[in-house]
Design a protein around this nucleic acid. Structure first.
Lengths: 157, 157
DNA sequence: ATATCTGCAAAGACTTTGCATGAGA
DNA sequence: TCTCATGCAAAGTCTTTGCAGATAT
């Protein structure tokens, strides 16, 4: 059953308090930016967005908050090979849901795909279970990316 | 049929010339270091190894050569989240073969696993084929990593 | 009231670049 | 011989840290 979004406090308020963290303007606005996009934002992208509304919030806080959100599991951090990390909401009502990435090694373009996810999911959960057992690892996350040339770059060569 | 390793020029000589690149001491020694380990070496790790034998070779050359080897497909570059890239031979006779990584998010330990690879391989090649078609992408590589807590770190908490 | 959070500036870490010298084919 | 490759030093980028002042609860 879906919750009533848009009324009452946002879904994440509880989680913050549970963990002993405070609810602050920077934290809320960063989550807000992330929850309103499906793009893969860098720390600076987020900084610029947030800065439009709250010009006093600094880049340091963006980094610190992102670290916190990653650690709490709200946000996933990705490396697409261009030297800067990208961040995406990994849970919550507006989340795009389970997806993986297709990364162009020439222009850096990133495509989200959700095709064949069901089958992947099945294999993944099976693999996670088996790996956990065999290596005594508590698996909490996974990363799957395909690399290659996108349509445009492929045709250039 | 296996080639006769250890006699004649190393397997990669031809590939270098084909691509118009020169065979140099730094390039050979870097490939040598990579082909004699199954660890995940950083640029500096490689530098230190190479430096033992050829003290004149600089870190810059390590980075430049690694870039070249990655681009040629000899070497794969990984990011385990500790801020420095790791490199592994991705092909060649001494290669450990197809494997993926299990990364401890607490201590950074990395475990290579090859279990369940057959099934994965099958799904991966199918997925690659389908994604190539749908997104008109020329896929050349993939990355799969699981994150979690290793035995030691799990028990600490 | 007080422990947490933030902003600024500065530092830190890894990686890349410019340029003159050196080396492979 | 003539490009391509290398080493050194310096610069570039992203990210983290120290600390005093501000803020949430």
């Amino acid at each position: 059953m879906p919750k009533r979004f848009g009324v009452g406090p946002p879904w994440w308020h509880g989680r913050f308090r549970e963990c002993g963290y405070r609810l602050t303007t920077p934290r809320e606005s960063i989550l807000d930016v992330l929850s309103k996009t499906s793009k893969h934002l860098s720390a600076e992208d987020i900084y610029l967005e947030v800065h439009n509304i709250y010009p006093t919030i600094g880049l340091t806080t963006i980094y610190r908050t992102l670290g916190l959100l990653v650690q709490m599991g709200f946000v996933s951090k990705f490396d697409f090979g261009d030297g800067r990390a990208r961040y995406e909401l990994s849970m919550g009502p507006k989340s795009v849901g389970h997806h993986h990435h297709l990364v162009c090694t020439s222009c850096g373009r990133v495509i989200d795909y959700t095709d064949f996810i069901e089958e992947e999911k099945e294999l993944l959960s099976k693999t996670e279970k088996e790996l956990s057992k065999r290596y005594n690892f508590k698996i909490s996350n996974h990363l799957i990316q395909f690399y290659g040339l996108c349509e445009r770059c492929k045709n250039k060569k």
